[in-house]
Write a protein that binds this DNA or RNA. Structure first.
Lengths: 295, 295
DNA sequence: AAACATCTGTGCATTTTTGAACAACCTACC
DNA sequence: GGTAGGTTGTTCAAAAATGCACAGATGTTT
């Protein structure tokens, strides 16, 4: 037996609270005729009288007093809800969901923990998965994407940084096979590459163009697996300069080149982009990116 | 920070619950364009987004989920309220406020207690006061009035019984002064009468016409005081046959006459008259009145 | 006693809300 | 790949809710 017209309950509530139709109309900001019509409609719907009418005003019946107490708490609940929602856009609290490909975890986690410490009310959820989380489904507040600029509608895209990548090999590999003198020497070496033939990453394309397919002896679809392949000595492969700098066991085969750079993008949904929480995080993120000069 | 449009919260609640605008529109029985407009209006009012829009539907944001839980309990509260109000007109429970002049207390109380015992859910409030309680102010459900038929608007009036009254004196008075032989002998006796000169009760008028004013030596405005005056031996006075029958110390001076009869009326407010609670009480009251043959 | 202020109630013009139809988009399924 | 079903979003006409003005009634104050 659900009630269909909550607004009528609200007007009835004010009438029960103030005792007069005119007073309720003033509070509600409507004409007193509207109040009368709301009461009539609601009483007809409920099949019972909520008020006794007389020339001095409306006095609530037993049912009217019942409605008064119920609507009183409703009014308070809605008021608190409104305060929470209005305030949440102006405070940095609650969940902040960030998504990125797993390969960026060690790059991003220091920044994420720093943001969490700066805003104790924040609970950071860092989602890394193979699939791309969709911002328009509300799966995350901020996504950090690599590669071509995303062009999804309703998403605001900002450049974050350029991720420099170079060719690296593990010390074990170098000890066993030596370093290639140059591109002409690649045929005698082993490489680690993407399993996906049409990978659009620029360094992957460069590998396809400059290294014989037979020399790519370790292939994986997951970026993290490629990185592990290099560190384990499976072959020479592309590693971001940032990751390489933190892994002393890697030896630089070819230094990063501009054409290998992969741009990083900050992507947010337009609905959430303007909120203080997201804006605050974006500021923190860009500040941290300035320290990524080495990547 | 009160919320002005409860209906918009209701539609937002359904959208959050079902996940789609179309589904909410079906449940609410309105067009989906209306739902969209409600959501837009509410979000604009709150200054925050409640939903993320995409082609598969609306997924609630953090604020939207907050609204969902609040509105969920509101829906339940209103539903229960509706059930209570709709049901209360069909059950005999709650308060039943009956008002009458205090002189009728001993006549009515047995009937009232009997009604309460027949309906354990009832709390009977019997208000007796000098002033007349006003039904149109919601002061009582049922009023029992004596005298001329009430003619207030919005009140439904039904005849209940005729209250027969006679002239009585206490045994002590009779022992001291004897009984008057007839109206011609009244001048030598003492009488108890109304203080109010323009009292409209027929027996009071009869007293004014047939008894010298000097013989009315005990006057009171309160009916109960008049009755006590008679029983205390202050003089000869009018007592209802019902009361006289229950007081053996009274001696009949003149038996009840039809022209002394005072009609009793049942008065109820038109809004409450049709409710089962009042109707049930009226049936009980009329049944009890059949046993008042002696009054 | 009489004027005043306040409240309810009702018919009519106006504004606001709603509904219908259509377009655009995405998803799923064949 | 293409088609069918479902969803959102927008424009214009219809419907409904609202505001206005005035009448009626009651209690209060001068």
């Amino acid at each position: 037996m659900p009630i269909e017209t909550w607004d009528e309950i609200r007007t009835a509530f004010q009438v029960a609270r103030l005792g007069t139709v005119s007073g309720a109309a003033d509070v509600l900001g409507v004409h007193h005729a509207t109040v009368i019509r709301h009461i009539d409609s609601l009483e007809k719907r409920l099949g019972a009288r909520l008020f006794q009418r007389h020339a001095r005003g409306y006095t609530p019946t037993e049912a009217g007093r019942d409605l008064l107490t119920v609507a009183q708490t409703t009014e308070e609940q809605f008021s608190q809800l409104s305060s929470r929602i209005k305030g949440q856009g102006e405070t940095v609290a609650g969940e902040l969901v960030v998504t990125a490909v797993s390969g960026m975890a060690d790059l991003l986690t220091p920044m994420l923990t720093g943001f969490q410490e700066a805003h104790p009310g924040i609970i950071v959820r860092f989602l890394t998965d193979l699939r791309v989380f969709r911002l328009d489904y509300g799966e995350a507040h901020v996504a950090i994407r690599a590669g071509a600029a995303p062009e999804e509608p309703d998403n605001v895209v900002q450049p974050l940084a350029r991720m420099r990548t170079g060719l690296y090999a593990s010390r074990g590999y170098v000890a066993a096979h030596g370093l290639p003198a140059g591109p002409g020497d690649f045929a005698g070496h082993r490489f680690v590459g993407a399993d996906n033939e049409q990978s659009r990453a620029p360094f992957h394309r460069w590998l396809r163009d400059n290294v014989p397919a037979d020399s790519v002896t370790f292939r994986a679809s997951e970026p993290q697996a490629l990185f592990h392949g290099v560190t384990a000595g499976a072959g020479i492969g592309f590693v971001s300069a940032y990751q390489a700098a933190h892994h002393p066991e890697l030896v630089e085969v070819m230094p990063p080149r501009p054409e290998w750079d992969a741009p990083l993008w900050i992507v947010t949904h337009v609905d959430l982009h303007r909120t203080l929480k997201v804006q605050s995080f974006l500021g923190h993120l860009k500040e941290a990116a300035k320290g990524w000069a080495g990547i």
